[in-house]
């Protein structure tokens, strides 16, 4: 019983050091804050404008009301903020590590390498996006007349975690392929551009794309499913499958990293 606790403490202490160090490094570039704020506002304005093109003429997107669709957009902004804060800065360093050979140092540390590579840096510049997304979700949900009960709130929280984990796993698996293809960075650009589809409820797409965004690239689980829960209309089937997809995605990312490492350590020179 005594063993896991110090281990956990060591990881927490490491995480705190990681983030303190990266915060110190990032704060040297204060101008970034203004730039990020501008980027988040402009992106939000653009998304709202695009959405208004659909709703402007009395149409809707896949049966979602304007306010309900805004919840989806808010969740997308939230996840985008998460990407800027954690996923992108960390996973882009995997590529650098592989290219410069400094992955060796990470592998020789007595700490889980996936943990190190996924949590090493923290960019405060994604925080405006996170905040804007959260505000939009709450405001839009209230305006949409959502009265989620406690159960739905718990489901929504779970689904948010699940969607963050799915997103993380997608990124991590792609970044891990840099062990083979050193110039893989573009692959994450592909992912980012395909995930733009998550700005809109998945039911707005034609049947073929909807299937694609549910089964192949789980965009549906990233924004639409949690939005349903926030709006108080989650179905147990979707909640369960979302959690399942998250668990499987996480396991796959873990297995894939082990596989990639076996390859790295048997092939690198």
């Amino acid at each position: 019983m005594a063993r896991p606790a110090p281990e956990l403490l060591r990881y927490l202490r490491t995480l705190r050091r990681f983030w303190a160090a990266s915060l110190a490094a990032e704060l040297e570039y204060q101008a970034n804050f203004v730039l990020e704020l501008l980027a988040v506002s402009a992106n939000l304005a653009g998304s709202l404008f695009t959405l208004s093109l659909f709703y402007g003429h009395g149409h809707d997107l896949g049966g979602w009301s304007w306010d309900a669709a805004l919840v989806v957009l808010g969740l997308y902004t939230l996840l985008d903020g998460l990407t800027t804060t954690l996923l992108q800065p960390n996973l882009s360093t995997i590529v650098t590590h592989v290219r410069t050979g400094t992955l060796d140092f990470v592998l020789l540390k007595p700490i889980d390498s996936q943990f190190w590579l996924s949590a090493r840096t923290f960019s405060p510049w994604g925080l405006p996006g996170l905040a804007a997304g959260a505000v939009l979700v709450v405001v839009a949900a209230v305006r949409a007349g959502a009265r989620p009960d406690a159960l739905h709130l718990v489901a929504a929280a779970l689904l948010l975690v699940a969607s963050a984990l799915i997103l993380y796993s997608l990124w991590f698996v792609l970044a891990a392929t840099s062990i083979w293809f050193v110039k893989v960075w573009n692959a994450t650009e592909v992912l980012r551009s395909a995930l733009v589809a998550g700005r809109y409820p998945v039911s707005a797409y034609p049947a073929g794309l909807r299937l694609f965004f549910t089964v192949v690239l789980p965009v549906a689980f990233l924004t639409t499913v949690p939005a349903e829960a926030i709006l108080g209309r989650a179905s147990p089937l979707w909640v369960v499958s979302s959690l399942l997809v998250a668990a499987v995605a996480l396991l796959i990312s873990r297995w894939f990293w082990g596989f990639a490492l076996r390859f790295y350590t048997s092939a690198s020179s």
């Binding site: 093109l53 659909f54 402007g56 003429h57 149409h59 809707d60 997107l61 896949g62 110039k183 573009n186 692959a187 650009e189 592909v190 980012r192 551009s193 395909a194 733009v196 589809a197 809109y200 707005a204 797409y205 034609p206 794309l209």
Partner: peptide, 26 residues
């Protein structure tokens, strides 16, 4: 790399999906 770049320009095709589902008439 360039194939991936080409793929990352899928936005118009995604938007096509959205528009064809709804509001073409508008």
């Amino acid at each position: 790399e360039i194939v991936l770049w080409a793929l990352s320009g899928v936005l118009p095709l995604i938007m096509l999906g959205l528009w064809s589902g709804t509001g073409v008439a508008s």
